[in-house]
């Protein structure tokens, strides 16, 4: 073949960053943290961090698809609260009738369906209604939160089940269930993104919608389904969160989840303009955020300042990506 005289090493640098930049950052942060605090490296602490990031980490996996396809979803936080609340209501309603396990299954199914419905609502407004994703999901963010408040009368959804919390509190060979689910989903999503037609099309649509359309890709369908994907991950996260707390606060649950999820995706190397990105990057991004929070706590930094640090990290990540371009 005609690959004359130009060696392989000419692979553009940005690709390297996209693939490994967040991993390098994670390793660096890990080293710094273990030096800064001896407690950091303890297994319990690591597991704690992983569990804490898993709720927004799971959502970030779906968010990766949305952002790669050129969209954004701001409604994930309030959707988490709404889905979580309704899951608990369902659980309480059926608890007496079909036994606890049955009720849990029904509640989870209802939760998943609700996540899909929420995602579909976003997707339809964006693709059929041709509303910009930012505006559309800003609107549904307000709607989902307000519905949650209305249904609960601005109070709390409390589960009466004693078995339900075991799901979110449980662990498998020492590793918490939500962490397993996050890692499992990450593997599946990674394969979907890199090895299937759908994943390829998601990247194509985000890279240049016009080219994709002319290439016989149903761009609207691809964009629509990316919101279903994120809706589903929201539902998974909502179930795990509500089962861990055995309750959902209508005012606080899922607050700022959109920030954390989007931040994880961006720190993971996916450009906000879409077109490319990786799932491992997003996982690393989520863990980076978790470690930063953890360190700030351990070092006794005021919790009110933690948002500042998070913000700086996001801006820094984007700055580095911009430089590489």
């Amino acid at each position: 073949m005609n690959i004359r005289a130009i060696p392989k090493k000419m692979v553009p640098k940005r690709l390297d960053y996209e693939r490994f930049g967040s991993l390098y950052a994670l390793i660096l942060l890990f080293i710094i943290s273990s030096i800064a605090s001896p407690y950091f490296l303890q297994l319990q602490n690591i597991l704690n961090i992983l569990r804490q990031v898993s709720y927004t980490g799971i959502i970030a996996l779906g968010m990766t698809f949305v952002i790669i396809s050129g969209g954004i979803d701001l409604s994930v936080g309030s959707m988490t609260a709404l889905v979580g609340g309704i899951v608990i209501l369902t659980l309480n309603k059926f608890g007496g009738e079909i036994g606890e396990i049955g009720a849990i299954v029904v509640a989870i199914v209802v939760g998943m369906l609700l996540g899909l419905v929420g995602g579909a609502a976003n997707g339809l407004i964006i693709t059929v209604g041709k509303v910009a994703p930012f505006v559309a999901t800003l609107g549904t963010m307000a709607i989902f939160r307000s519905l949650t408040l209305y249904i609960s009368n601005a109070g709390e959804f409390r589960s009466a089940s004693s078995m339900y919390p075991e799901l979110g509190m449980g662990d498998l060979i020492g590793i918490p269930v939500p962490v397993w689910i996050m890692l499992g989903l990450a593997v599946v999503f990674h394969i979907v993104l890199t090895r299937t037609r759908y994943g390829r099309y998601v990247c194509a649509v985000g890279s240049n919608e016009r080219v994709a359309r002319y290439a016989a890709i149903k761009t609207e369908v691809i964009r629509f389904t990316s919101y279903l994907v994120v809706g589903l991950t929201v539902a998974v996260s909502a179930v795990l969160l509500s089962s861990r707390l055995n309750s959902i606060s209508s005012t606080n649950a899922g607050l700022n989840f959109e920030l954390d999820a989007i931040a994880a995706v961006i720190i993971g190397g996916t450009p906000l303009t879409g077109g490319s990105g990786t799932i491992p990057g997003t996982v690393f991004g989520a863990i980076i955020l978790g470690i930063i929070n953890n360190m700030l706590n351990m070092l006794g930094v005021s919790p009110y300042l933690q948002g500042t640090v998070k913000g700086l990290v996001i801006i820094g990540a984007v700055l580095i990506q911009g430089k590489r371009r």
């Binding site: 394969i191 090895r195 299937t196 037609r197 390829r200 099309y201 990247c203 194509a204 890279s207 240049n208 016009r210 080219v211 994709a212 002319y214 290439a215 016989a216 890709i217 077109g275 490319s276």
Partner: peptide, 26 residues
């Protein structure tokens, strides 16, 4: 309209005909 500049040569070549190259996975 023709090509995706951020895609590599392989992915551009099979952009329209990708169906021919996959069952479940590519």
């Amino acid at each position: 309209i023709g090509i995706l500049t951020s895609f590599n040569l392989v992915a551009n070549t099979t952009l329209v005909s990708l169906g021919k190259y996959c069952r479940l996975l590519i």
